[in-house]
Design a protein around this nucleic acid. Structure first.
Lengths: 155, 155
DNA sequence: ATGATTGCAAAGACTTTGCACTTAG
DNA sequence: CTAAGTGCAAAGTCTTTGCAATCAT
């Protein structure tokens, strides 16, 4: 039996969470680690089929849900369609901006919520524990070439 | 034939957009106008069935999509589930905060994006045209009673 | 060995579509 | 009158689930 070291890269992490280390789970974690942006289950599924051996889409969903329940990944839904997105739960906090011309995602370090947190705390005694921010607009190139929105009519 | 004035309340608005004024369209607009928060198609459907005569769910979806294409309503998706939300496109800009203890929505006037807009413009030449912000946390009461999150584990 | 994980097929939830009937303009 | 709107049923897309086979510990 051929067992690459690769396959156990996340073994300790997984066992620590009380779940078994499997080929699929390792592959999905690895893929998420390589991904700059949140991915849909299908994107991951397609890449996994290309890179590693076969896997079923339902296994991808189940694995991602398991990871989400262990807080290893964060599940969210894109605002402009109903598809679920999954990303590794680094503890770093980051936002992206989406160009509606070319659909490129750009990471930004800025987070404008900090101030609001204090404001709401003192004004209405509301404790912010989390937030999700999606920003749309035109990047340098799309503005230049005056591209129309690709399919984000309502934003 | 009984034709209440009510039924034509939005006639001019609709005709101006090049679409016909119908009982259903008027009812949906009226309902959206009464709604403090974005509604799912099904919420609207159920209320419509109670308040007005029968309507089909597909008609609700078609009507909302038509309205969205005319920019009369804004369609979005909540971050934590896959259901589409529809709200009237007032030109006012407003955000809500969600209490993860009791699921209450609270409207806030604050919008922290203004400054960021300038920042990104000058720093990376990105023109923000829209954004979506969802904020989670504990309201005064839920903090007091130490209620656990209802079902927003990953936020 | 034994309970967890997986593939497969089927079902579920939400949304869209085709077509014949109805209605607004 | 005629194109637009609607109900109904069927299909489509994304996601979840039941069950038998397989795998990790």
């Amino acid at each position: 039996m051929i067992l690459l070291d690769e396959n156990s890269k996340y073994k300790e992490l997984l066992n620590r969470e009380g779940i078994k280390s499997t080929r699929h789970r390792n592959a999905i974690l690895e893929l998420l680690e390589e991904s700059e942006f949140p991915q849909t289950a299908e994107q991951l599924f397609i890449t996994l089929r290309e890179k590693t051996a076969s896997i079923d889409l339902s296994t991808v969903y189940r694995t991602l849900d398991t990871f989400a329940s262990k807080n290893l990944v964060i599940k969210s839904n894109r605002v402009d369609d109903g598809k679920a997105l999954y990303e590794l739960n680094h503890n770093e906090h980051k936002h992206h901006i989406l160009c509606v011309g070319c659909h490129k995602l750009i990471s930004i370090e800025d987070c404008p919520i900090g101030d609001l947190k204090q404001t709401l705390k003192s004004r209405i005694d509301f404790d912010i524990t989390g937030h999700k921010l999606e920003i749309y607009g035109y990047c340098h190139d799309c503005k230049k070439y005056k591209l129309p929105p690709a399919d984000h009519d309502n934003l």
